[in-house]
Design a binder for these strands. Structure first.
Lengths: 166, 166
DNA sequence: CTGACTGCAAACCCTTTGCAGACCG
DNA sequence: CGGTCTGCAAAGGGTTTGCAGTCAG
């Protein structure tokens, strides 16, 4: 791991400590280790992968704690998820070039077209990772319905609220 | 549903028939209904949502058939999935602006940065859907490792191959 | 010290699979 | 008609939850 990586992790850890303190949450060893592990990779692990990594240094952690910590970090805004989260794979029969809007609160997804966004320039650094099949834009935001519902406290919504169906 | 929608669905159905015939697959009522339903929406339903919709017109379908049909369509290249598929939610502690490369075969995901791709112009049509939190590029492709492994027939890989961990 | 947090184990839910009967081509 | 496909039911695997003991603040 390079030096710049290290400082990046430290910076994120500081951020965690600040935010956690403000929210009155305890910084247990488990939480710190889980966050340190996640902050140190760009492989976007799932819960189980992260669990196995943390387990190396902390053989007593449990998978449940990893789940709980991840969603806690998510509620604090320190962590995001990839794709329209939760509730399995979602399918798309639209083979035309298009882009996606998805609501971070309820999981709604809608297509949109934009000539301006077609044919995005893919950097050479990416081409070194592999061959490119397609490139599209993912816009995340709050859909109109969820904007209206924002009376609900934004942290610690009932957990069922994470990722409804469309 | 508008007229243009209808013809779009018909066009996709024709495509399905052609491809299925070439592959020697049978076009059962269930498969046609499932595909028709999926081709007629841009809500990107998951399997269960699709199941409930098809069930209205065809009360005897089973959820298993929906799953099997979706993956079949996927193998035929008639359907794509959203996000780095399968195996639950994946997490990201990188709050800096960045973009994603993800391998359609093994599910590997890597971050990349690109000033050129930051600050993408979000069309007004999207702003009407809701408020925008962020916009980034998703590049899909084959990672270097999977490119090497392409000796394996690309259709009907062992189903475990759909979406490994990183 | 005390309430928040963890580990354990059981519950839950979504997804896949084996099998016998149904149906497309 | 034959092989594929479907529906059923059960298994499988990931995620969540209730509870009693533990630990950070």
């Amino acid at each position: 791991m390079r030096k710049s990586e290290l400082s990046r992790i430290d910076r994120r850890l500081e951020h965690l400590k600040t935010v956690a303190r403000e929210a009155g949450l305890k910084l247990t060893h488990q939480r710190l280790e889980i966050f340190r592990e996640l902050a140190g990779t760009d492989a976007h692990p799932d819960a189980e992968t992260l669990f196995r990594a943390v387990q190396q240094r902390m053989p007593t952690v449990s998978l449940d704690t990893v789940y709980r910590t991840l969603w806690m970090l998510h509620d604090l805004g320190l962590v995001t998820t990839l794709g329209p989260q939760r509730y399995g794979v979602r399918f798309d029969a639209n083979l035309d070039r298009h882009h996606h809007f998805s609501c971070v609160r309820c999981g709604l997804v809608r297509d949109f077209e934009s000539e301006e966004l077609d044919g995005l320039p893919v950097p050479d650094s990416v081409k070194r990772l592999g061959s490119v099949v397609d490139a599209h834009v993912e816009v995340r935001g709050l859909c109109a319905t969820c904007q209206r519902d924002q009376g609900t406290p934004k942290n610690l919504q009932p957990s069922g609220t994470r990722g409804e169906r469309t």
